[in-house]
Structures are given as structure tokens and as C-alpha cells.
């Protein structure tokens, strides 16, 4: 499959996390080229920026700080998509502290990138086993362009113990003991709590929707 490639490019921000290869392969399976990088200029010039992540917010924010990427990411105006921990990093803060994003304990507040005004908290699983691991359904799906073709009841792959609550920035929700944000968005920033790169054909659809967004498409949502 060949695509019309513009002068710009797609980048995956090298957050030092382990799932970079699977995100890259998912983009490449759709016929797009993508570069994994922590180079400030490449990130700034990209058409689309993907912010992946697994592990702990503290560890990932420490990496982002060490690479001087905080203000770079905050000033991006092109579409940016965060996956899982990458979504959580887009919020004001996470309570997960030193623990991994999948452990239901909190022992400190980690300031995040503050791109979408909501806060990540322990998942209120109401006695369900943690981590919330496996395929779960989406509900309350908004008409955000990144969710084009996704319907209520479609399954996506989740692995986490922390989540963003339902808020005005929620564009899709999920339920595991209680409702939480499966996806959030504000302006050019979009985050998915699930892993689109591991969510079969529907996950690929979301990545494709993102890569096909026009540069101005998110401006006046």
C-alpha cells in the first residue's frame, strides 16, 4: 500500500519506554513511515506526533525532563496522540508516584505535561482484580474524528491500574468497577488509555484516523 507522503513526517517520541517497537510496527503496517526519536527539531517539525508509554509516570517524566522535552511537547500545535501511559502524561498530574502505572497503589504526585486539564488517579475497580488487563468495551463515544468508525461495544486492549476520571475532555469511556476515560482530547492533543497498537483491526483504525487528520482539523472542535 502506498500513501501520498507529504513533506512532513510522523514521529514517535522516544520516552525510553519498552513498547516503542510495537507502536512503530503498528504505524508501518498501515503503510506509513515513522521515526522513533528524541530529537527536538524532528519532533517540532513532525506532521504527527505519537507519545507512547508503559511503566511508571515518574520514570517516564524523568526521562522526558532529562531529554529537555517538556516545553517542546507542551508547545506542539500539530496533532499529538498518546497511548496508555503516554495519555496519562498528557494530564496535569498522576498520583502513581514511584509505582508502575499498573499497580493500584499511590505514593506521591507526579506533575505531568498539563496538556489536558484532568488528573490521573487509581482506578476505582470496586473489588475487581488489578491490573485491569484484557479486552474491554468502549461506551459514550463522541464524534471526535479520531474515533471515526468506532462503535459502542467495540473491544480494545487495556493494561493499567490508574485512569483519568470522566470529565468534559472524555471522548470515550470504559467501565471496570467504575467508569473512567478510555480516551480524552483537548485541541490538538488526544490520549487513549487502551493500546491501539495491540487492539487488532479497530486499534489500527484509530491510528489510521489519527494519521489521516488534517493539520487544522482539531483546531475548532
Amino acid at each position: 500500500m502506498t500513501k501520498e507522503v507529504s513533506a512532513g513526517m510522523n514521529v514517535i517520541v522516544d520516552t525510553g519506554c519498552a513498547n516503542l517497537a510495537s507502536v512503530k510496527f503498528a504505524v508501518e503496517r498501515l503503510g506509513y513511515q515513522v521515526t522513533i526519536t528524541d530529537n527536538i527539531e524532528l519532533i517540532q517539525q513532525a506532521d504527527k506526533v505519537i507519545l507512547p508509554g508503559v511503566g511508571s509516570a515518574k520514570h517516564a517524566m524523568a526521562n522526558i525532563n532529562a531529554k529537555n522535552l517538556v516545553s517542546v511537547l507542551q508547545k506542539l500545535t500539530q496533532p499529538v496522540l498518546g497511548f496508555c501511559l503516554g495519555m496519562q502524561l498528557m494530564t496535569e498530574s498522576s498520583t502513581e508516584g514511584n509505582k508502575s502505572s499498573t499497580e493500584g497503589k499511590s505514593d506521591g504526585l507526579v506533575p505531568c505535561l498539563n496538556l489536558i486539564p484532568t488528573k490521573v488517579e487509581p482506578l476505582k475497580a470496586q473489588g475487581n482484580r488489578l491490573p485491569h488487563m484484557g479486552w474491554n468495551t468502549l461506551s459514550q463515544i463522541s464524534d471526535h474524528p479520531v474515533l471515526k468508525g468506532i462503535s459502542e461495544g467495540d473491544y480494545f486492549y487495556f493494561v493499567h491500574s490508574f485512569a483519568a476520571p470522566i470529565s468534559e475532555y472524555t471522548i470515550a469511556s470504559c467501565e471496570y468497577g467504575s467508569k473512567f476515560s478510555a480516551a480524552i482530547a483537548k485541541d490538538n492533543f488526544i490520549g487513549c488509555q487502551f493500546h491501539p497498537e495491540r487492539s487488532s483491526a479497530l486499534g489500527s483504525k484509530i491510528i489510521q484516523n489519527f494519521l489521516e487528520l488534517g493539520p487544522q482539523e482539531l483546531v475548532n472542535l
Binding site: 508503559v54 511508571s56 499497580e103
Partner: peptide, 9 residues
């Protein structure tokens, strides 16, 4: 391993 990579994996 859980400390470095997260319990989930």
C-alpha cells in the same frame, strides 16, 4: 523485573 518494567508485563 516488576520495579523496572511494571507489574503488568
Amino acid at each position: 523485573l516488576a520495579d523496572i518494567f511494571g507489574q503488568q508485563c
